[in-house]
């Protein structure tokens, strides 16, 4: 084969296969992409939550995009504890100042970054959250401190619409 000079016919074969492959990929793509989030799912992208009645030291859980979001009004001790941690002690170093712009309010996805369970409030070795599924411990800033989870609990995009209302998403 290698001795043979490529001829007209070889070129036609290669070109036909290439066009065929592109065509097949173009047909397969809609069949794959139909499984991605649809327009109605994407439309539910933001939620407004009234947090006026949340007392210090309490957490409320709201559903956003099918996932629980923890909104915790932290106590002074919890804020102090979260802000006094050294960066080198963290598995996923993030400053509490960056996670909670308003130190009193911690807003994050209540989803363990290991395999997606919902961690339990006020539990674990670091006074924050504990995931019962595979034993991940989170601190008062929702940062992973011990266990199999690789990352801190995710802080979603949110803003205070007014003093008592948080808009998530």
């Amino acid at each position: 084969m290698s001795d043979k000079k490529p001829e007209r016919r070889d070129f036609l074969f290669t070109a036909s296969y290439a066009v065929g492959a592109v065509g097949a990929a173009a047909v397969v793509w809609p069949l794959i992409d139909q499984m991605n989030p649809d327009a109605s799912v994407k439309a539910l992208a933001s939620t407004e939550v009234d947090v006026g009645s949340v007392k210090r030291g309490n957490t409320i859980t709201v559903l956003w995009r099918g996932k629980p979001v923890f909104i915790r009004r932290r106590t002074e001790e919890e804020i102090k504890e979260a802000r006094s941690v050294k960066m080198e002690d963290l598995i996923h170093p993030e400053k509490d100042e960056d996670r909670a712009k308003n130190p009193e309010w911690l807003v994050m996805l209540g989803v363990c970054t290991h395999l997606g369970c919902v961690p339990l409030n006020d539990k674990g070795d670091y006074d924050g959250w504990f995931c019962p599924c595979h034993g991940s411990h989170y601190d008062t800033s929702g940062r992973i401190r011990k266990g199999p989870a690789p990352l801190n609990m995710e802080v979603p995009k949110y803003e205070f619409v007014n003093a008592n209302t948080i808009k998530i998403g």
Binding site: I32, M35, N36, P37, D38, V41, R65, G66, K67
Partner: peptide
Amino acid sequence: VTWLWGGYSVDNPTLTR
């Protein structure tokens, strides 16, 4: 994972597929 779920969590699209 989002593609498998058809959303941002396990939900109806996940169940039907």
